[in-house]
Write a protein that binds this DNA or RNA. Structure first.
Lengths: 195, 195
DNA sequence: TCCGCATTCAATCATCTGATTGATGGAGAG
DNA sequence: CTCTCCATCAATCAGATGATTGAATGCGGA
């Protein structure tokens, strides 16, 4: 259209490029090590240019949050029986942790930071509630289908699953071998009767 | 006038005071917001004095790590049957999270940082292994006692418990109400037949 | 009393870091 | 061709931050 060529055009690409670079920077160095200069450098751009797109560092961080959260929401999409969708969820997280380990590093940083950032806490709280609610429903449905044992409380188990996945994926202990991860996941699946 | 009299007990007192202040600072602001000046201020001491006891910021952080880890190890001490000791462990964590919430904030920071700090990762990895190992043994013993169901894998369930507790306590979502915490803990206790 | 040692402080340094300013090149409109 | 923005850059600022220096202050021993 006539005027704004930046709404969806190439200039928007630069914006995303910068947000992406910041995302990677946080994954590698945490918020503690996030430097605007490094972000600009990674894109091969002047610091002033970064501030042209993001007036302040906080604005840049907001963009990173948006990116991370959107990446994450893609893990609950699946079809089939409730049990199948639960299996798919676990499997999807396994795959995601292999293909995009940075995402989990960033999510961990975001969760910790949410303790000191009200607006961030709100964003995360919402995603969290949706996640847990979806799991609760899936567990309940899977009980109706006869897959998940009846003596399990959907609400409580949803809490356990969410907490376990957070603990396993967002707080890595031995940087390299995800041995404990698989043990925990398998045990969860066993309790749910998914194997 | 003469210099104000210092309240020196043991020569280590000032050192601990500073480490404690840094500990509190990290609990409030995270590593991201740790400033040596603030730490010195909190103790009412000159920055140079801080550097007299801790040549570098890293040295100060090491001391904080030591303090946090030692505080944490006190949660596994208990006597009685394996089931009782498991119950006591959960109960002890509930109490600790009420009485020393800072400890969990700091532990969360440490866990995240361990991804970028090899020596820290080693310290935490050791504590983690000990924790998980103890739980595994307790679960196995509780199975012999007939409390915990036989179909549970002690190794896997220990992983689940550790991960769940980390997720629940170290990655707070809704800053205030620990509603989800209690749900998750109860469900874990139910699965273990502890209630 | 004098000396040495342990502590502490005021002042300062060197750098880092987020942010701003003014100028420049280029593409499209008239 | 010229005028006008958009995007970008080099240079710079102001404040923060980890660390150092050299000088006090007080205490115990010789």
């Amino acid at each position: 259209m006539a005027k704004a060529k930046r709404e969806t055009g190439p200039p928007e690409a630069r914006r995303e490029e910068l947000a992406l670079a910041a995302y990677g920077e946080i994954a590698r160095n945490g918020f503690e090590g996030l430097r605007t200069r490094e972000v600009a450098n990674a894109v091969g751009v002047n610091i002033a240019t970064l501030h042209y797109y993001f007036p302040s560092k906080e604005d840049l961080i907001r963009a990173v949050i948006g990116h991370a959260m959107s990446r994450f929401q893609s893990t609950l999409a699946a079809t089939g029986s409730a049990a199948d969708r639960l299996r798919a969820h676990f499997q999807g997280l396994r795959r995601l942790s292999r293909q995009e380990p940075e995402l989990f590093a960033v999510m961990g940083e975001l969760m910790l930071r949410s303790a000191r950032d009200r607006s961030l806490a709100q964003v995360i709280g919402k995603t969290d509630a949706y996640w847990q609610g979806t799991l609760r429903t899936l567990i309940r449905d899977a009980q109706s289908e006869g897959t998940v044992p009846r003596n399990i409380d959907p609400e409580g188990m949803a809490s356990v699953i969410v907490a376990t996945l957070k603990g396993v994926y967002l707080l890595p202990v031995g940087a390299g071998p995800p041995a404990g991860v698989e043990k925990a996941l398998r045990q969860l699946e066993d309790v749910l009767g998914l194997r």
